[in-house]
Design a binder for these strands. Structure first.
Length: 274
DNA sequence: ATGGGGGCCTGCCGGC
DNA sequence: TGCCGGCAGGCCCCCA
């Protein structure tokens, strides 16, 4: 999503911001529309699943898509052809227009998403940011870190990898996919996986994410990439959403199972994953 | 202190 | 056709 927004938002001035309801998951900050209007986006960054847009006002706009959030871009796009603005839709909660004629619509049916304005200088102390673990694609996420984080942990490895304090940014799909590639059962307690197998998870997690980003995201159902086109990583899922299908490991005769763990579906091969 | 489950919302799909 | 249950990419909060 950051990559999709980059050409229209970074360096652009927000000419107009329309806020169509008082809240998403939490109330919007006071006077959000006024505080956005006239601001120039100096940098567009990402931390975990949050988009962070630094403004020249000293504030940073934080955006989270939750489960069903989408960003739709229309109008002038730098280096691209012109897209007509779409007709307004139900759940278009925030609409931002730039000086250069681009329109960005935040649409979120379930409203699990979020937006907030942070003081840029102290953004890392924000309650949504401060406890996040290392970025999985960054240098701070390494074998030693994951081994230490798993040590003594009683929770299933599935829950541990979804814990944003251990590693930031993994969701249900990518944890399922990484565990299948690593041959680790989602049910296994994190603290009872041998160090070499934990270490092997690190490059696997990086691979899964890098491939997903390259393919443009997962894009299930109504979730779209920032440019409005469907992503393709969903076609490469090996286990997620494949309950009852044959395991894709060569020679493996098992079928993929689904099991609910702390309220989330885990998909896994009972033969390949131990 | 840690871990599991509930809850927040709406929409869609399949079964009856 | 309509109704109902189940399910969905996340994550805070409460309780044991």
């Amino acid at each position: 999503m950051r990559r999709g927004l980059l050409p229209v938002l970074e360096g652009a001035r927000i000419a107009k911001a329309a806020v169509n309801r008082p809240d998403l998951r939490w109330p919007f900050p006071e006077n959000m529309a006024e505080r956005l209007t006239g601001a120039t986006v100096t940098a567009l960054r990402r931390r975990s699943k949050y988009i962070l847009a630094d403004l020249d006002t000293g504030e940073t706009l934080l955006i989270h898509l939750g489960m069903s959030g989408r960003m739709l871009i229309s109008g002038n796009q730098v280096g691209q052809f012109h897209h007509a603005h779409p007709a307004p839709e139900k759940h278009d909660h925030v609409v931002i227009e730039t000086d250069e004629g681009a329109r960005i619509i935040f649409n979120d049916a379930r409203r699990f998403g979020a937006m907030d304005l942070l003081e840029t200088a102290t953004q890392n102390a924000h309650w949504l940011i401060r406890d996040l673990g290392p970025e999985p694609l960054g240098n701070a996420f390494h074998e030693t870190h994951l081994i230490a984080a798993f040590k003594g942990k009683r929770s299933p490895v599935k829950s541990a990898l979804l814990d944003q304090r251990i590693v930031a940014g993994l969701g249900n799909i990518y944890v399922c996919e990484a565990l299948w590639r690593a041959g680790i059962s989602p049910l296994r307690h994190a603290g009872r996986i041998g160090a070499p197998r934990v270490a092997a998870l690190v490059p696997i997690i990086r691979d899964v994410l890098a491939e997903a980003i390259e393919a443009g995201g997962s894009s299930l159902r109504d979730h779209r990439q920032a440019n409005g086109e469907l992503g393709y990583f969903q076609h490469t899922f090996r286990v997620y959403g494949r309950e009852g299908e044959a395991c894709q490991t060569p020679e493996c005769a098992e079928k993929i199972r689904r099991k609910v763990q702390s309220g989330r579906s885990s998909f896994y091969c009972p033969a390949c994953q131990r």
